[in-house]
């Protein structure tokens, strides 16, 4: 579905939900008449549940965007690292060469992170927001667990270059015994960003946020 159409449908749905609920606030007599039970069920259960579901879906979808991740100040250096001019820097070379969708740059490689993983990951996602708003962000941000090869193999498994170059150690890589980052060890490099030149063409920018 076209994104704009989806957006209008969503807003219309919420407005209809508000309209029906307001009708109950203004005229509670309506829902106590014959047939009113059905209207009450629609206004106070069906529509609100549908609106909530649509809202959750929309917010989760938008939180996958690079813009969303970089809207937090603490994430700015990670966004900047996508623009460093070094072909061996994994995030930068993936971003600049369009090996990943630029609008989903963070989510593509951190799929099991925060809102997108299991229940514990979702709770952690909300906790991150609270920690951020309380201003208690740690100096150094670390992953909860070592980076999993699964995130690389989403795309690289089955690719010719990967299959040919890693014929000998494929089993170890796929069982996560040997981390991809053992050899491809240049990731975001946020501590030494100042040492690198920038690729000026498509530097990700922080657009809005707290």
């Amino acid at each position: 579905m076209d994104a704009t159409l989806g957006w209008y449908l969503l807003v219309t749905l919420v407005l209809v939900g508000i309209g029906f609920a307001m009708l109950v606030v203004a005229q509670p007599r309506l829902v106590t008449r014959s047939g009113g039970q059905a209207m009450a069920f629609l206004a106070l259960f069906v529509l609100p549940v549908t609106c909530l579901w649509a809202g959750v879906s929309t917010h989760l979808e938008s939180s996958k965007s690079t813009e969303f991740c970089l809207s937090c100040h603490v994430m700015e250096p990670y966004g900047e690292s996508l623009a460093i001019d070094d072909e061996f820097a994994l995030p930068a070379s993936h971003f600049q060469n369009r090996r990943i969708d630029r609008d989903r740059a963070c989510y593509t490689c951190h799929t099991q992170y925060t809102m997108y993983g299991d229940l514990a990951a979702k709770i952690n996602g909300v906790r991150h927001l609270l920690v951020y708003y309380r201003g208690a962000t740690p100096e150094t941000i670390e992953l909860y667990e070592p980076y999993h090869n699964r995130e690389c193999l989403h795309c690289h498994a089955g690719a010719r270059l990967y299959e040919e170059m890693h014929a000998e150690d494929r089993a170890e890589i796929e069982s996560n015994e040997l981390s991809c980052l053992e050899c491809h060890d240049m990731s975001h490099e946020v501590a030494s960003l100042a040492d690198y030149d920038r690729w000026p063409t498509a530097e990700p920018t922080r657009t809005e946020g707290p």
């Binding site: 939900g17 609106c51 813009e67 927001l129 657009t207």
Partner: peptide, 22 residues
């Protein structure tokens, strides 16, 4: 119940205005 839902849905509508931020 309806009043809570109205306010909740209004907040939801407003939250769409800041969709690209936490």
């Amino acid at each position: 119940s309806a009043l809570l839902i109205v306010v909740g849905l209004l907040v939801e509508l407003m939250s769409f205005g800041a969709l690209q931020s936490p």
